[in-house]
Amino acid sequence: MHDILKMIARRLGFGLGTLLAVSIIIAGAVELLPGDLAQEILGQSATEENLAQFRKELGLDKPVYERYLTWLGGMVQGDFGKSLANQREISELMGVRLKNTLYLAAIAAVISVPLSLFLGILAALYRNGIYDRTVNVTTLSSISFPEFFVAYILIFVLSVHLDLLPSISNISEDLDAGERLRRAVLPALTLTLVVVAHMMRMTRAAIINLLASPYIEMARLKGLKPGRIITKHALPNALAPIINVVVLNLAYLIVGVVVVEVVFVYPGLGQLLVDSVSKRDIPVVQACCLVFAMTFILLNLLADVLSILSNPRLLHPR
């Protein structure tokens, strides 16, 4: 157990390093954006004095590295700065959005992870049969379509024709839990359709990969039922690759939802990012990117720790 804690600490250290690198890249990318920020925000009519005053307020007149260090210093202390568009604290602005995004991701994960494991296990059990092929074709086609297309199809069927669910998911704090869930279902379903194929196919492949192992043959020769062989003997040993793909998809559910949020007008981080980009609200864009990067790093750490916990050799040393 001690070794695992040590590993987590080391990986967190690496994660911080990665985050630092990401922050440099983000700051550099912002610097490369064409046009003059002050001009863009104040508009054509702004006078030279106004522009100079604005630049000074934002510190745009200082050299790049100085601005970067100030920004980084603020980040470390949890001060994300203020939004240019409405002068609100970014941490406050993002807090609600992040919560919404996590809420949507959680619903999508609760539906898609068990579903894809279940479908994958069944596909491995009845491999190369009709069921296997049907599931493969269905899930593959659902990821082959663009997300917005899947989203509009779902809206067309579930809200326009059957009138079961709202097509706009503008949730907010003051809605009761049931209504919030109801409004989040359509975007969550869309995301599920996008991520299931990947996870399900990895589950299937990881299990089938193990079916030629001597211990699976042993399990068969002990007279065990096929279902038990798959779930009890193959699955525990196939967990590491499955966990990695599941976590990668969870990360996608958080950072890759931009399009889906826009389609459903869902007030999440992705929506915020898109709005901020169009408004040239650079500090908000930077903060969003950093949060996305952090999500990726933490989830990958989680995947590594879970993979280790799934390996008895590492969990129970000699």
């Binding site: 211990y215 042993m218 399990a219 068969r220 020769l221 007279g223 065990l224 008895p312």
Partner: peptide
């Protein structure tokens, strides 16, 4: 299988499930 006819494999290390 397993109840009336049983099997002992060559490599016990590979034939026991590591999990």
């Amino acid at each position: 299988h397993g109840s009336r006819i049983a099997y002992v494999a060559q490599s016990a290390a590979a034939s026991f499930n590591p999990a």
